[in-house]
Amino acid sequence: MGRYLNTTVAKKFAMGLSGLFLVSFLLMHVTVNFVSTVSPSVYNSLSEFMGYNFVVQLLLQPILVIGVVFHFVMGMVLEVNNRKARPIGYEKFDKSSNTTWMSRNMIITGIVILLFLGLHMYDFFFPELAYKFGNGYDAAQVPDFYTGLVAKFQDPIRVGIYVLSFVFLMLHLLHGFYGSFQSIGWGDRNSRALKGFAKWFSILVPLLFIYIALFHYFGSL
């Protein structure tokens, strides 16, 4: 079995699966964040659940981290191999006549998203580690997540970086989401419906993230 996993098709299958897993996480994330624009108290309850629930923290969160790391490392491995497949390039190569910018530059949009994840972890994940895993659950120590969220979006430079990163996320998803179905062998089944769904998901989810960031920035002015 192991020898089969080393082929380019198997690697792309794994890339597709991890991509679809990350897309499902994005849907959950944007849903919780959107609640912050509607009801601060419900947002706080959801954040407390996500921040302290045993299954979320000790099972789903490690799987998510592994998924992100795997997706990025495998993407880099495939990129390096792909560059080796054409050691001598063309004098003239008209790539724009048959491909989109998004499809050709997944590695660039991916690296930008990874850099953004660093900032995002610095903003929201690392500061929470102490009270999440330090002294165990203590209701009195649970912070006001909503206030913390709004405070982060007061800096226009940070908001600008977030908005720009979500644009790159959109570009990455516009090619990658449907491509994941293709990589796992589903591309030829209901492809029109799948393509339409993947396209609108890829546009709407990053737009919602942008809306949430701008909502909290302008809402507090």
């Binding site: 690697k11 792309k12 497949a85 048959n98 499809s103 997944m106 449907y178």
Partner: peptide, 9 residues
């Protein structure tokens, strides 16, 4: 050969 990245070219 390289791997397919679904560019469609």
């Amino acid at each position: 050969f390289g791997s397919c990245t679904n560019t469609g070219a």
